[in-house]
Amino acid sequence: MASTPVIETSRLSKTYGSGSRQTLALDNLSMTVNRGEVFGFLGPNGAGKTTTIRLLLDLIRPSSGSARILGMDARDDSVDIRRRIGFLPAELNLWPGRTGNQIIYYMASVRGDSKGIVKHADELAEQLKLDTTKRVRDLSSGNRRKLGLVLAMMHEPELLILDEPSSGLDPLMQQTFHEMMQGYRDKGKTVFLSSHVLSEVQAICDRAGILRDGDLKAVETIDKLTNVEFRWVNVRFRDAIPDGLTAELRQSDAISQLDLNGSQATMRLLGDFDPLLRIIGQGYVEDLRVEEPSLEDIFLAFYSSEEGGR
């Protein structure tokens, strides 16, 4: 029997305001997140990512539809759910006059078993190189983010819900964060993270959902999302590019976004390599580089195809 999804939403919608000032923030969101996966929730600012997370946490109430977390109703069983999840908001705000240790102790006390939780928090703080004796007001934005991660993870929750988790972390810490998330997944736990940093999602997520204007456009594995038909190709010739070759590149249906710069040509290649190889074979190719499309490209391609279809 398949295990119960960790997150399951059914036609979840949220509307803010009323009358002419009504805004649809989330439109009939139906999706599932399975146990043991790192699920990325992608979308530009204002897409509805934070609204979804706040609905899952029962901070706001749906206009229609429902959500189940760890098999429980997100509204009726919200206290039991929050016992088993960890949360990091996009904008972490804490009491400025309290130290990291004081906040850790308080939150551990509310969760019960404060001794064990505080011990684990100390380990996490060490891993993230965070000084928890400082007051919140004295912490840099990156260190506040680290404190937020410690607070979200210190009770070893079954599900981590992270809103833009690595914003403000330096590259080294981002790497540490990615490793922590992979470690989490290896323990069979689940991570649901929202991000507009697509490389982050690419690096750590198993699947991703793409959200725009409150509408879930797609849910795919990262491999499938990145398996698109085009690549970026950069060709460097030994000499200036002959006019005839340039004309053929421009005429090819497989090539678009051609950029010529002296002896160098950059282009977007759709489909097989053979047509390109036949054209560039007319010159002396010094170097040929192929780049897989980034998630940014996929994102843009996805949106442009959606808009083209409208």
Partner: peptide, 14 residues
């Protein structure tokens, strides 16, 4: 108003 309530209510407290 200052956003701390989101953290408070992410705890298992009614």
């Amino acid at each position: 108003d200052n956003g701390i309530m989101d953290m408070q209510l992410s705890l298992p407290v009614q």
